[in-house]
Design a protein around this nucleic acid. Structure first.
Lengths: 221, 221, 221, 221
DNA sequence: TATGAATGAGCGTTCATTCAT
DNA sequence: CATGAATGAACGCTCATTCAT
């Protein structure tokens, strides 16, 4: 009966809000910029969001949720894998990293916003939570790897998880600002090579070392 | 232009501004909060700073400058060191890391502010610059290490520098929020052990591995 | 112009508007509150009323009109009644007062709104008009009473009408806020006794005094 | 040292606010109207008042306080006066009434605002409180008068106080809208004559009645 | 020079009213 | 006719900056 709700309205507003927030941060974003960019009225904004902060929260929470489900899609850490499948495991991890960073690239706008804590004082906790979440995810994997004999038994998983997730975090921060997407596959091969050594157990290194010591042998044809 | 009469005033204002910025971020800090905390008048503030942003810039630039000089105090990378002094070198690096993070701890307030981009959109470039600066510093060291045969010849110094400085960055972000200072010496020993493996050249690892593999010596073989 | 299809709609809206206006006053009432309470759409509201103010005016005007017809139901002031029927007259007036205040009680919500000028600046004239109307009514009766020799010949009818209608006004304002309806019959007996003395002519007082002085008869003389 | 505060600023703003509030009521008054009328900036307003409501409250509370002290200046109700001094007492009351209404006339702007509940929903309690306060004052006097034998023993002081304060209230409401100040002395003589009869005890009426019945006798000389 | 009162642009939010369906 | 999404003018309040003293 009534004028049907523009089904694009909220989406348009969210997209506009996203870009304005990315550009100016939460505090310096003007609602009028958002509505202007969306081609909507100021009233329309408040039809869909309770406040500027609310819109911001929706955007970031959506991202975090999608990011979380991205992390959770990780192949489960089944016990008893042992060291045999290590090479395959490493390959699987690389693949998952590529996937996640593909996602990061796709959402590099908001991702950057998130990594910068919304450029506001009020939502700093968001990035902290997000950082902690990914650190814990990393730590869980590391602890499992230690139990499975894949990682060094004396690994300080607490610190290592910080180092690892910090490394990924920075790579993400770097990528998010680029104009062109880097070659993710190559990147994570390098990264694994760079980081694995410090983490791998001696047994695993018996296997992986040759690959690293003579990288050309992999390419020999 | 003329030298302000009360040199104490500016210092008081800077200290107050620092604490207010740390608490509320650039955008949400009110000049009145700053002057109130400093026990100065608003006029005095504008006598010393052109604007709120200006005060912020001065604070952060000072920090960055001090941080930079902290990094530059690093023992120079003299060519021709070779692999003999590797153990000493690693120890020296650890020591320098401890020093730098001691500094970070001392300045954890502003440091945290810096790491959060001032909680504002306008100064995101500051932290980017800072991150880039420390990455370049790392990269220079890595490149030197590769030339000296300390690090793997096939190391992707670009990526490795990202990973390394990211790891340090995250450790810093973590520390900056703590109530109690962690045991830095122990921390960087662990960190070196965690990271070095991925970076070290085979030749170096002949030397460093035993140090790391010690734990294995406790195992039967 | 054309007859609205759903005659119920307007009634529902008026009832809802009434309760919302009573609760929040004209200015603080939101059209959406009214339509929500009526279970109608905002469009429907503007189908029946030109504006929020219009709805308000309709409600208050209706009340005033009904109030006026209530007053006009008063037995006409036929000249030549003389002082004989004074007692009956007083009883009739009391009865009419009870009736009017019964009406006030029934409509205490809007009545209160009216007595508060709609809690808005725009309709203050409404209550003024209403007050003036009831004062004039009172004054007419007083003038008639003076002519008939029922009230003191030297009565300042202008002032007395103000005093009288003010007294009634305040009693109404008081009642309108009560939870329970007071005993109106008893109330107006008291009121008459309180006010009549000051108004009555000596001749009338010869008659009415004994009625009032009864209590004294219980005292020794 | 600093620019000295304009000592007139707050007063100017209060005067302007008063007139704007009187004209438009609390809700429809625009802060900009007030500041414009006062020749001050919007900021200046918030330098002196926390909010529009705050300014309103200050104005009304000040009035109520002054009004209250006006009422309290009433000669105390000393017991044991008896009926001898009745005439003098009545004269004293008239005098006090004149004084109070002189005050009302002086402050007819805000007074009118107060009597209209600020033309807002939020401050209706103000007028209620004020009305109740003056009713209680009246009631206290009536009760005292009954004890002293000045008023009828069977007086319903509760209702009579309502009637009396209502009468005064309406007279005030009427005066407050006039262009010219009425002759207060004459007015309260009339009012006393109108109301006293209904209240006075028989004993008192022995004294006062002659004055009323033959008003000319007082003027005969 | 130092002060803090004064300024006013700027922005978030509300809500009466309109109008496409 | 009915609906309720869309509009945008309006307004309260904040706070960086200025400037009279």
């Amino acid at each position: 009966m009534s004028r049907p709700a523009d089904p694009h309205a909220k989406i348009d507003l969210l997209r506009a809000a996203e870009s304005v927030f990315v550009e100016h941060g939460l505090d310096n974003a003007r609602v009028e910029d958002i509505t202007g960019r969306a081609g909507k009225s100021k009233g329309a904004f408040y039809l869909h969001f309770g406040s500027k902060e609310d819109a911001f929260r929706q955007i970031v929470e959506t991202l975090i949720a999608r990011m979380a489900s991205c992390l959770d899609d990780t192949p489960p850490l089944v016990d008893g894998v042992g060291t045999q499948g290590a090479v395959e495991l490493l390959a699987a991890w690389r693949e998952r990293d590529v996937e996640i960073f593909e996602f990061v690239w796709q959402n590099r706008g908001v991702m950057r916003l998130l990594l910068e804590g919304g450029k506001s004082a009020a939502f700093g906790y968001l990035i902290d939570e997000f950082a902690e979440r990914s650190r814990v995810h990393t730590m869980r994997t590391l602890a499992w790897g230690v139990r499975e004999g894949i990682f060094r038994a004396d690994l300080d998983v607490e610190l290592a998880s910080l180092v690892l997730s910090g490394a990924y975090d920075r790579v993400a921060r770097d990528m998010v600002k680029r104009q062109r997407k880097p070659d993710l596959t190559k990147m994570f091969e390098q990264m694994q090579r760079t980081l694995m050594y410090g983490l791998a157990s001696p047994a695993i290194r018996e296997i992986t070392d040759p690959l690293v010591k003579n990288p050309r042998s992999r390419r020999s044809r």
